[in-house]
């Protein structure tokens, strides 16, 4: 991370923390912000966040490690989360999972080398009547079939500016 980038992020962290009067109840909203902006929460960011809330960095680390939507490892621009819970499983999640791996050339838990996609399993998405379901960032996709997978991936790849990747994945 460039020093200027860190300063920029730090400014955003402090701005958000201030909204919560630097009270700890603002910690998770700040972490969500950092996760959105830099697609992970780096050790440096954790230091800056800890400072903003006047807590020990390990407290921040403890929170980050607890929640599945926060991560210390850099995620792709688009995080694909396929529901692995029972109803989606029975509706054919395994075939969709297989095709996602084929189309992206990675396994679950990995990120494509161009930094575009991360593939993950997640627990129940609340779309059990319309499975298999998956999230791509915040968008929900239901009744996904192996044939539809390529189109869905392509629709994200072709988004305006999607190819622009910042940070170490570039």
């Amino acid at each position: 991370m460039l020093a200027s980038e860190r300063d920029q992020l730090k400014a955003e962290i402090n701005k958000m923390a201030k909204k919560y009067d630097h009270h700890r109840s603002g910690l998770i909203p700040v972490l969500q912000l950092v996760q959105n902006v830099s697609r992970h929460i780096s050790p440096e960011a954790m230091q800056d966040i800890a400072e903003a809330f006047k807590i020990h960095p390990v407290e921040v680390q403890g929170v980050v490690s607890f929640y599945s939507f926060l991560s210390t490892e850099k995620k792709g621009k688009f995080v694909i989360r396929l529901c692995r819970t029972i109803s989606c499983d029975m509706a054919g999640k395994e075939a969709v999972a297989n095709q996602l791996e084929n189309e992206l050339g990675i396994e679950f838990g990995e990120t494509t080398t161009d930094g575009m996609f991360t593939l993950e399993f997640t627990n129940c998405l609340g779309m059990c009547d319309q499975g298999p379901a998956m999230l791509v960032n915040d968008d929900i996709h239901t009744k996904v079939t192996p044939e539809k997978v390529a189109d869905i991936i392509e629709s994200y790849r072709s988004r305006f500016g999607a190819h622009v990747i910042q940070g170490e994945h570039a």
């Binding site: 700890r24 109840s25 998770i28 403890g62 929170v63 607890f66 939507f69 926060l70 627990n123």
Partner: peptide, 25 residues
């Protein structure tokens, strides 16, 4: 609105409150 961050246990009311307060759920 306060957004969760992906943890089933936060549906338990005291865990939910812990999470609201910025802690592990």
């Amino acid at each position: 609105i306060h957004m969760g961050s992906g943890a089933y246990i936060c549906g338990e009311e005291t865990a939910l409150i812990e999470s609201l307060e910025g802690h592990r759920g």
